[in-house]
């Protein structure tokens, strides 16, 4: 039962990735013709801009289409959930879930402890950590919708108590941009905000198109995190950061690696492997808050890494923790902007 759900989830993820790769390939094809790259990119950008305008129009039309309750939806774990009426009291159980609800213009009544964006959500009631949501506080809020996170709450130990409460639970996810689009459509229907959702999807698509057109052809990159012992882990294609690298058309040198080590979507990287890959850009993310040393600075102090071309060209860049690691979701627009700015810098 659960296995088949997991299967479906994995399949959706894989399909999403396949779509991304497909998109990347079709972007490459016109570049192979004799047309100068810059012109081609500009042309693509114009086309995309037109597409965006169209999308916005469609969005405006969709806004007229209100959700008719009760409505049956399929969430990101493949569960079928019936929403009886437009939700008014919403509890979100992860930063990603809170951002999806808030950006669509619905009010968040309860949030997980670590949620700190957008600012108005911080005033919502703290319902405990994302990994141990407090049933008592949730019950007191008496919500008519709980928005959970497919990457955190899918395990039966966390999922079953939520479902047992009788309150409709919707699982959202932002593993990659394809999943984000599906989540936006899902939440648009659930919250009667389909118009807002379509606008957001159009904005994300536009940001993705602009980022991939500004990132130079053939740029290779790696995104690294490190644990306490400074063991390095690179974002592979299964991670949020890896999906973003694919989206902007950068070659992720660790993209094809299998998961190894404790972090899903990340693969441990031996220093000599990093030297062998020698990517154009090294993007570093440091989970520990300041004044803990930044990983981008630590890398510079490891003697053998002085030979890396990214090191010699000063292409070792510290990236934002929230955007690339902790809060996959609506802030993808900022993440894509940061990524294209970094990867197109001289």
């Amino acid at each position: 039962m659960r296995d088949s759900r997991m299967m479906r989830f994995a399949l959706v993820g894989t399909a999403g990735l396949a779509l991304l790769f497909g998109a990347a390939c079709s972007d490459d094809e016109p570049e192979a013709t004799s047309t100068p790259t810059a012109t081609e990119a500009a042309a693509t950008a114009t086309t995309e801009a037109t597409a965006t305008a169209e999308a916005t129009e469609t969005a405006t039309e969709a806004a007229a289409e209100e959700t008719v309750y009760p409505v049956e939806v399929t969430d990101m774990l493949g569960r079928t959930v019936t929403i009886e009426a437009e939700p008014t009291t919403i509890v979100t159980l992860s930063p990603t879930a809170a951002e999806f609800v808030a950006i669509l213009g619905a009010e968040v009544a309860g949030r997980s402890s670590s949620t700190d964006f957008p600012p108005e959500v911080v005033d919502a009631t703290d319902v405990g950590s994302a990994y141990q949501p407090n049933q008592e506080v949730i019950a007191q809020l008496n919500p008519d919708l709980i928005v959970a996170d497919a990457t955190i709450h899918a395990a039966p130990q966390l999922r079953e108590p939520l479902e047992a409460s009788g309150i409709p639970v919707i699982f959202v996810t932002a593993a990659n941009i394809g999943d984000m689009t599906t989540t936006y459509e899902l939440m648009g229907t659930v919250l009667n905000k389909s118009g807002e959702a379509a606008e957001q999807i159009a904005a994300v698509d536009a940001a993705a198109a602009e980022a991939s057109s500004s990132v130079p052809e053939g740029v290779s990159a790696i995104l690294l995190i490190a644990d306490r012992d400074n063991t390095l882990y690179a974002a592979n294609a299964g991670s949020w950061a890896g999906a973003l690298l694919d989206e902007v058309g950068a070659e992720n040198v660790a993209g094809g690696e299998a998961d190894s080590g404790p972090y899903p979507g990340f693969s441990s990287v031996a220093p000599e492997v990093l030297l062998q890959w020698d990517p154009d850009y090294i993007l570093a993310v440091t989970p520990a808050p300041e004044p803990a040393p930044r990983l981008s600075d630590i890398l510079k102090q490891i003697p053998p890494f002085a030979g890396l071309s990214a090191m010699q060209n000063d292409h070792v860049v510290e990236m934002d923790l929230q955007l690339f690691l902790q809060s996959p979701g609506p802030r993808v627009i900022e993440a894509l902007g940061a990524l294209s700015e970094t990867l197109s810098a001289e």
């Binding site: 395990a155 130990q157 966390l158 404790p262 972090y263 899903p264």
Partner: peptide, 10 residues
């Protein structure tokens, strides 16, 4: 626990 990513959160 270290080798199983699904178990990390628990």
């Amino acid at each position: 626990l270290a080798s199983s990513t699904t178990f990390l959160e628990l």
